[in-house]
Write a protein that binds this DNA or RNA. Structure first.
Length: 836
RNA sequence: GCCGGAGUGGCGGAAUGGCAGACGCGUUCGACUCAAAAUCGAAUAUCCGAAAGGGUGUGUGGGUUCGAGUCCCUCCUCCGGCACCA
C-alpha cells in the first residue's frame, strides 16, 4: 500500500541549495544584528570563543550549535538576543609556528580566523558578526592594558619573585600547560625551575567572595562548582608562634587542629623556609645541610611527576618551645612540607596526622595520645599502626582535658590570641595568578622600569603599547621583546629619563576574562565598554563551553567581573547566569586531533548532507553534556529524517494553502488526535530546549510528531478540516525545528505561504485544551504487576475508576478467591490493586 | 587517598516514585520495482509457549513503598577532578 498519494511529483530535498540561499538571505538582511531595546526582554547567549587553530572540527562545532539552538529559540520567543562570536587570538601555537615555519603569528592567526569564520557561517550559526573581535588586535588588547593599570593602581596587580618553568635548551619560559610530564613539549628536555620577577593579579583578595558566591550559581553544574570550591580550598585554622629554644627568633606554623597541639612533639620546616638556611650556618656541617636542602627542593618537583616520594627529613640541631606544653621540641626539615602553603612550617602531631605519624616512626620521634573516644580505652602509642585523625575528647592536654575537639579549638585559639602568640586564620589553596609570559604573541604589559622612579605605568593616552614587528622568530633568548631595542628603550613617563619597557606579555587568559563584556560594546574606542550597554546585556544568560575551563577561564572571569564591579563598571558579581559544559565528540574512542588523524571535518559533512542534518545529528545523538562517539550512520539518519519532513510538508502544502481556518469543534477523531500530538510536541520541545537543555529529547519529540503525521496521511482522510489540522501540525513542526535546522525551516516556512521569514515569526503556543486527552488509558496493577488496562474519562472520579479497574476482564482472574486489601489510584497514571 | 559523576537491548540513548527500553541507528520481513536503490509499512530485551499468555530483567546485595532504573544503605566497575594543602 503505497501510502504517499501520487499527486504532484515530490520535490527533492537539496539541502546544499537551501544552505546557500538562506545564508545569503541572513547576511543581506543582517538578520542577527541587534541593538539595545529597553522595550523588549534581553537574552545574552554566548559560547566560549575559539582559539583560531585553523580548522574547526565537529567537536568544536557542537558547542556552537548548542548555543545557536538556544539563541534561535529565544529570538522566536520575542527576546532581544545578543549572540556574538570572537577569537582568542593570542597564544603560543601561533608563535611556535612562526619559529618553525617562519610565518608571522599575525599573518597565520588572521588567516586561520578567516577560514574558521567561513566554517561557522556555512553551518548557519546565527552570530552578530559585526561585533566580532580578535584579542590580538590593538583595539582589543589596549583595554587589557588599561585594565592592568587600573588594577596596578589598586594593588590588584603587583610584582614579585616567583618560580617558573624554564627549558634550558630552548632558553625560554614555558607555561604549565607546555610542561608534559616534567619535560618541554617541543624538545623533550627536562624543565628546570627558575626564580624570576613576575607580575601577579591578586585574585586571593576575592577568595571568600568567589567561594561564597558559588552558592548562588544555581544554574551551574554542581561538578564545576565543586571543582572551584576545591580549587579555592578554604581551610580555617590557627597560626601559632613557636619561640626558638636557644636563639632569639620564632617560627610560625599553621594548623587546622590546634586541639592536638599537646601532641606536637616536633616541628617541621619546608626546605624553602628561611630558617632552614639560617640553621645550616649554625650546623656542624653546613655543606651537607645545604646539600640536603637542595636535594629536597628538587625532589619536590619530581614528586609531581612520579607521584610518591618517600617522606624524609633531617634534624636541624635546633629546638623550639611548644607554647602549650612548654617542652623543647626538635626542629626538623621535611621534604613533604610545602614552602608556598601556610607559613611553610608545620607542627608535627604524629598521633593525629598520618604523614607526621610515618615521619615519627621512621625517625623515632615521640608519639603522644591527645584525643580519646568516649567509652573507649586510651590508645597506647606503641600499638598504633596508623594515625588517628578523628575528633574526640582531649586528654594529656593540661587544662583542656575533657573538652571536645571543636570546643577545644575555640578556647585554644582564643588563648593564643590573648597571649599574643597567634590568631585564628583562614588559609586558601588558591594562589595569586601569575600572568607574566616571556613570549611575543600576547598583550604587552604596559609598564616602564625607571632607575629612579621604579615601576611606572604607561600613561593611558599612550595606550596601546603595541607589538613591534619581528622579522625572525628564533625561539632563542628570553622574552623576544627584550631583544628589540626600539621596543625596550623608552622614556620614563614620570621623570623623562631613559628607562626600560617591561618585555613580558600577559597570559592569554587575561584576554578571555572579560571579552563577554566587550561584545556588548565591541567598537568603543574611548573605554573598554560603556557601562550602560553592558548594563543592558550582561550578565550572560546562557554560556556554554568545554569542561576543561571549569576552573581556569571560569574562575578568572568571575574574578574580573568583581574587579569591574569594584571599578563601578558593572552592576553584578557573576558574569554567567546559566552555564552548560558540553561533552567532547570522540572519534575511534579518542578526542579528535590533527596528530591522531581522527578529525571529522564539518565541511566534508556539509557537502554530504548539508548544515541542517549535521546540526540535527549533533544535537540528537546525546544530551549536550555527554561525551559522544561520532558515527556516520547517525548522520545519515538525521539527513533521512529531514528529507522525510520535507516530503510530508510537500504532501500537504497545496491543501494547507487552500484550507480555511481550523475549527476545533468540527474535527474528526483522527484530526483531534493529531492536534493533540501537535500541541503535546510544542510543550515537550519548549521545555526540553528552554528549561532542560535536553536537545536530544526535543528532537525525539519532533520525530514522533512526524511519525504521527505520516500515520494521519496514511489514513487518507480528507475532511474539510484535515488540511487545516495538517497545516497546524507542519507549521508548528517547522517552527520547533527551526533552531536545529534553520535553512530547511526557512524554506518550508516560505513554501507554506509566509513571506516574512522566520525572523518575524513567533514560537508556537501550547494550547492545553487542544492537548487534552478525551479518554485516558490506565494500566491496572495487581500486586505490582500490570494485568490489564482500562479506559476512563479524564474527569472520572475515584469511585468510577476503581469500579472499572475491578471489572476489567483481564484483571478479574487475578482477583478470584482473594481479598482486595487496598486500591491505590495515581490520578491520570495507573490503578494499583493489592490483594491478600 | 579525598571529592564529584555514571553503570539500562547489538549500538546511541529515553523514562515528575507509576506500563522499563520513547526516539534514532542497525537488523529482519512485507509493499512498490523487471531488478536494485530510495521510499512507505511491520517486527526487533530475554526465557518458556504454535498461540493466547506467563516468567525474568536497568552493575551487586539488602531496605523503604501498593509500586523503585529513579529514594536509602553495602559492595563492585568505569570516567572526571584534586592530590603530601598541615
Amino acid at each position: 500500500m503505497g501510502s504517499i498519494p501520487t499527486r504532484a511529483a515530490v520535490s527533492e530535498y537539496r539541502p546544499q541549495e537551501l544552505d546557500r540561499k538562506w545564508q545569503a538571505h541572513w547576511a543581506a538582511t543582517r538578520a542577527f544584528e541587534v541593538t539595545e531595546d529597553l522595550s523588549r526582554p534581553k537574552f545574552y547567549c554566548l559560547e566560549m570563543f575559539a582559539y583560531p587553530s585553523g580548522h574547526a572540527h565537529v567537536g568544536h562545532v557542537r558547542n556552537y550549535i548548542i548555543g545557536d539552538v538556544v539563541a534561535r529559540l529565544k529570538r522566536l520567543q520575542g527576546f532581544n538576543v545578543l549572540h556574538p562570536f570572537g577569537w582568542d587570538a593570542f597564544g603560543l601555537p601561533a608563535e611556535n609556528a612562526a619559529i618553525k615555519h617562519g610565518i608571522h603569528p599575525e599573518e597565520s592567526t588572521l588567516g586561520n580566523i578567516a577560514h574558521m569564520k567561513g566554517q561557522l557561517q556555512r553551518l548557519g550559526i546565527s552570530y552578530a558578526w559585526e561585533r566580532e573581535l580578535a584579542t590580538c588586535m590593538p583595539d582589543y588588547f589596549r583595554w587589557n592594558q588599561w585594565l592592568f593599570i587600573r588594577m596596578f593602581e589598586r594593588g590588584l596587580a603587583y610584582r614579585r619573585r616567583s618560580t617558573v618553568n624554564w627549558c634550558p635548551v630552548d632558553r625560554t619560559v614555558l607555561a604549565n600547560e607546555q610542561v608534559i610530564e616534567g619535560a618541554c613539549w617541543r624538545c623533550g628536555t627536562l624543565v628546570e625551575q627558575q626564580d624570576l620577577e613576575q607580575w601577579f593579579f591578586r585574585i586571593t583578595a576575592y577568595a571568600d567572595d568567589l567561594l561564597d558566591s558559588t552558592e548562588a550559581l544555581s544554574q551551574w553544574p554542581e561538578k564545576v562548582l565543586t571543582m572551584q570550591r576545591n580549587w579555592i580550598g578554604r581551610s580555617e585554622g590557627a597560626r601559632v608562634t613557636y619561640a626558638l629554644a636557644d636563639h632569639p627568633g620564632s617560627v610560625d606554623v599553621f594548623t587546622t587542629r590546634i586541639d592536638t597541639i599537646y601532641g606536637a612533639t616536633f616541628l617541621m620546616l619546608g626546605p624553602e623556609h628561611p630558617l632552614a638556611q639560617q640553621f645550616a650556618g649554625l650546623s656542624d656541617d653546613p655543606t651537607v645541610f645545604r646539600a640536603h636542602l637542595t636535594r629536597f627542593r628538587s625532589q619536590d618537583r619530581s614528586a609531581r611527576i612520579s607521584g610518591e616520594v618517600e617522606k624524609e627529613g633531617f634534624f636541624t640541631g635546633q629546638y623550639a618551645v611548644n607554647p602549650f606544653t612548654g617542652e623543647r621540641v626538635p626542629i626538623w626539615v621535611a621534604n613533604f612540607v610545602l614552602g608556598e602553603y601556610g607559613t611553610g612550617a608545620v607542627m608535627g602531631v604524629p598521633f593525629g596526622d598520618q604523614r607526621d605519624f610515618e615521619f615519627a616512626r621512621k625517625y623515632g620521634l615521640q608519639i603522644r595520645t591527645v584525643i580519646e573516644q568516649p567509652e573507649q580505652p586510651r590508645v597506647d602509642p606503641s600499638t598504633m599502626s596508623e594515625a588517628l585523625p578523628a575528633e574526640g575528647i582531649l586528654c594529656q592536654s593540661g587544662p583542656y582535658d575533657g573538652l571536645p575537639s571543636g570546643e577545644a579549638r575555640r578556647q585554644m585559639t582564643a588563648d593564643v590570641e590573648r597571649r599574643g602568640i597567634g590568631e585564628g586564620t583562614v588559609q586558601y589553596r588558591l594562589k595569586d595568578w601569575g600572568i607574566s609570559r616571556q613570549r611575543y604573541w600576547g598583550t604587552p604589559i604596559p609598564m616602564i622600569h625607571c632607575a629612579s622612579c621604579g615601576v611606572v605605568p604607561v600613561p593611558d593616552d599612550q595606550l596601546p603599547v603595541t607589538l613591534p614587528k619581528v622579522a625572525q622568530f628564533t625561539g632563542r633568548g628570553d622574552s623576544p621583546l627584550a631583544s628589540i631595542p626600539e621596543f625596550l628603550h623608552a622614556a620614563c613617563p614620570r621623570c623623562g629619563a631613559a628607562a626600560r619597557r617591561e618585555t613580558d606579555t600577559m597570559d592569554t587568559f587575561v584576554d578571555s576574562s572579560w571579552y563577554f563584556y566587550r561584545f556588548a560594546d565591541a567598537h568603543n574606542d574611548q573605554r573598554p565598554f560603556d557601562p550602560r550597554k553592558v548594563g543592558y546585556w550582561a550578565p550572560v544568560d546562557f554560556y556554554s563551553g568545554g569542561i576543561e575551563h571549569a576552573i581556569l577561564h571560569l574562575i578568572y572571569s568571575r574574578f574580573f567581573a568583581r574587579v569591574f564591579r569594584d571599578l563601578g563598571m558593572v552592576d553584578h558579581s557573576e558574569p554567567f547566569t546559566h552555564l552548560l559544559t558540553q561533552g567532547m565528540v570522540l572519534k575511534d574512542g579518542a578526542v579528535m586531533s590533527k596528530s591522531k588523524g581522527n578529525v571529522v571535518d564539518p565541511d566534508t559533512m556539509l557537502q554530504k548532507v548539508g548544515a541542517d542534518a549535521l546540526r540535527l545529528y549533533v544535537m540528537f545523538v546525546a544530551p549536550p553534556e555527554k561525551e559522544v562517539e561520532w558515527t556516520d550512520s547517525g548522520l545519515d539518519g538525521s539527513f533521512r529524517w529531514l528529507a522525510r519532513v520535507w516530503r510530508i510538508a510537500d504532501q500537504w502544502r497545496e491543501e494547507a494553502l487552500v484550507a480555511g481556518p481550523l475549527e476545533s469543534h468540527a474535527l474528526t477523531s483522527d484530526e483531534r488526535t493529531l492536534r493533540r500530538k501537535t500541541h503535546d510536541t510544542i510543550r515537550r520541545v519548549t521545555i526540553d530546549i528552554d528549561q532542560r537543555k535536553q536537545m536530544n529529547t526535543a528532537v525525539s519529540a519532533m520525530m514522533e510528531l512526524v511519525n504521527d503525521l505520516y500515520a494521519f496521511t496514511d489514513k487518507g482522510e480528507r475532511s474539510t478540516q484535515a488540511g487545516a489540522v495538517a497545516r497546524e501540525a507542519i507549521e508548528s513542526l517547522v517552527l520547533l525545528l527551526s533552531p536545529f535546522a534553520p535553512h530547511t525551516a526557512e524554506e518550508l516556512w516560505e513554501q507554506f505561504g509566509h513571506q516574512q521569514g522566520l525572523g518575524s515569526a513567533r514560537w508556537p503556543v501550547f494550547d492545553a485544551e487542544a492537548a487534552r486527552a478525551e479518554m485516558l488509558v490506565l494500566p491496572v496493577q495487581v500486586n505490582g504487576k500490570v494485568r490489564g488496562r482500562i479506559s476512563v474519562a479524564p474527569e472520572a472520579d475515584a469511585g468510577e475508576v476503581e469500579a472499572a479497574a475491578l471489572q476489567a476482564s483481564s484483571v478479574v482472574p487475578h482477583l478470584e478467591g482473594r481479598t482486595v486489601k487496598k486500591i491505590v489510584i495515581a490520578p491520570g497514571r495507573l490503578v494499583s490493586i493489592v490483594v491478600a
